[in-house]
């Protein structure tokens, strides 16, 4: 659905995006991850025809974003970062206006406006002036706007930035629901969000794609770096720790009142049994045994540090 090849964008001498290539298949929800200034917004702006690339090309639904810019924009619902809106208009009035410039006319328009108002939980504030709305509501107005023309592709630039936890959760649910009907490219720097909403992830670092993989693969990768953490009361004898080493590289850390042992292994269940056996035979008091999996966050740090 979205095809980007060798996209490069210079601002003066500064390369915001360097040789970025990726594909997004139809119906996928793709998280676009990166630090601030990694080039996420620039890439999205190029895709929506707001900026032109210095070199390289991109197509959406087979249409070139540069040559068929207006046609591409008909197929894309875009919500820019920080969601700028006309603060002097009422919510419904604004959506009507946006529907108008997106070419939705006649009896169809009130239907669509009504639909997006309900979809984004805006019905209570439809008569309110946008300037008086809280940030969360404004984000929803922006999202509602991007849905107006029912475009096959949604490009959302940090849709949950600056929201409170409940709003983040409801927005996330909405995005997941929308993902069933639309192809979504959403940028964020909150990893857990991608983990929960997206099918796959593109990590962009210093203007380059550092990783593109599905969330499942990434989680599998994270699982393969699993560790078992066991915590015991008081201090434990060294022989026991050496016994555990048969399972994998083990490190023991003695604290004031407890000992923490970490075993790196793929067989978490086996290691747990072994630890408990060891504890029983040696009379250690177990305080806690739990697997420690690296989060996506850890992977992200690893990947961006490597790149």
């Amino acid at each position: 659905m979205i095809h980007v090849s060798h996209l490069t964008k210079y601002y003066g001498d500064y390369a915001a995006v360097r040789d970025v290539s990726f594909d997004v298949a139809a119906g996928q929800v793709v998280g676009f991850l990166g630090h601030n200034g990694a080039g996420k917004s620039t890439t999205m702006r190029i895709l929506t025809g707001y900026l032109a690339p210095t070199s390289g090309s991109a197509t959406i639904a087979g249409l070139d974003v540069f040559n068929d810019s207006v046609e591409v924009r008909r197929k894309v619902g875009y919500m820019p970062e920080s969601c700028p809106l006309y603060t002097d208009m009422r919510v419904e009035e604004y959506l009507n206006f946006r529907a108008g410039i997106k070419g939705i006319h006649g009896g169809f328009r009130p239907m669509r406006v009504d639909f997006v108002l309900r979809r984004c939980w805006l019905t209570d504030v439809r008569r309110q002036i946008i300037g008086t709305l809280s940030k969360g509501y404004r984000q929803r107005v922006g999202l509602a706007d991007s849905l107006l023309a029912n475009p096959p592709v949604l490009i959302l630039d940090e849709p949950t930035a600056g929201l409170d936890p409940t709003q983040i959760r409801s927005t996330r649910d909405l995005i997941r629901e929308l993902g069933q009907e639309h192809t979504i490219l959403l940028s964020t720097h909150i990893l857990s969000e991608v983990e929960m909403t997206a099918d796959s992830v593109i990590i962009i670092h210093q203007g380059q794609v550092a990783l593109q993989s599905s969330i499942k693969d990434l989680q599998a990768q994270a699982g393969s770096q699993g560790k078992l953490l066991a915590v015991f009361d008081g201090h434990v004898d060294g022989q026991g720790v050496r016994d555990l080493e048969t399972f994998g590289p083990t490190e023991a850390k003695a604290e004031l009142d407890r000992t923490e042992i970490r075993i790196r292994t793929n067989d978490i269940a086996g290691a747990t049994r072994k630890v408990l056996d060891e504890a029983r035979t040696r009379g250690w008091t177990v305080r806690e045994v739990r697997p420690e999996r690296p989060t996506l966050e850890d992977l992200f740090v690893q990947i961006t540090a490597r790149a």
């Binding site: 046609e71 924009r73 820019p80 410039i101 706007d145």
Partner: peptide, 14 residues
């Protein structure tokens, strides 16, 4: 100044 130009210029308008 308010950034709304981005909304306007990414709408399907020439």
């Amino acid at each position: 100044a308010t950034g709304t130009i981005e909304m306007l210029l990414t709408a399907p308008l020439h």
